[in-house]
Amino acid sequence: KLLSSIEQACDICRLKKLKCSKEKPKCAKCLKNNWECRYSPKTKRSPLTRAHLTEVESRLERLE
Rank of each mutant, 00 (worst) to 15 (best):
C20P: 07
L15P: 00
R50Q: 12
V56T: 10
A9Q: 06
E36V: 06
K42G: 05
P41C: 09
A51N: 03
L48R: 02
P25C: 02
K24I: 12
R62H: 07
E7L: 14
R14H: 12
C30H: 07
Q8D: 10
H52R: 09
T43L: 13
R62P: 07
Y39A: 03
T54L: 08
S58K: 15
S46V: 08
C37E: 08
C37W: 02
K24V: 11
K16Q: 08
Y39M: 01
T43G: 03
L53E: 05
L31H: 11
L18V: 15
H52E: 02
H52S: 07
A51Y: 10
S40M: 09
W35L: 11
S46G: 03
S4P: 14
K22L: 01
K44T: 09
T43S: 11
E36Y: 13
E7S: 14
V56G: 05
R62D: 07
K32Y: 07
R62N: 09
K29A: 06
K16R: 11
E61F: 13
R38S: 09
C20H: 07
S21I: 00
L15H: 14
R62G: 08
R59F: 01
E7V: 15
C20L: 03
K17Q: 10
I12N: 15
L18A: 12
P41H: 05
I12H: 10
W35H: 12
A9H: 01
L15I: 15
S46L: 00
C20W: 08
K16P: 06
L2K: 14
S46I: 00
E7K: 15
I6F: 12
S5R: 15
V56A: 12
A9C: 01
C37K: 01
E36F: 02
T49D: 04
R14F: 09
K24E: 11
K24H: 12
S40R: 11
S4F: 11
A9F: 12
E64D: 05
E36N: 08
K24F: 12
D11G: 07
L63A: 00
K16D: 08
A28I: 14
L31V: 12
R45H: 01
L2A: 06
S58R: 15
E57G: 00
L63N: 11
T43I: 11
R59G: 06
V56K: 00
E64W: 08
C20M: 01
A9I: 00
L31E: 13
L63V: 10
E7N: 15
A28F: 14
P47R: 00
K26T: 15
E61H: 12
E36M: 11
K32H: 05
L18K: 15
C10R: 01
E23N: 11
P47Y: 06
P41V: 08
A28Y: 12
N34F: 08
E23Q: 10
V56I: 03
K22C: 01
K1P: 10
R50L: 06
N34C: 00
T54D: 09
L53G: 06
T49K: 05
E23M: 09
I12K: 14
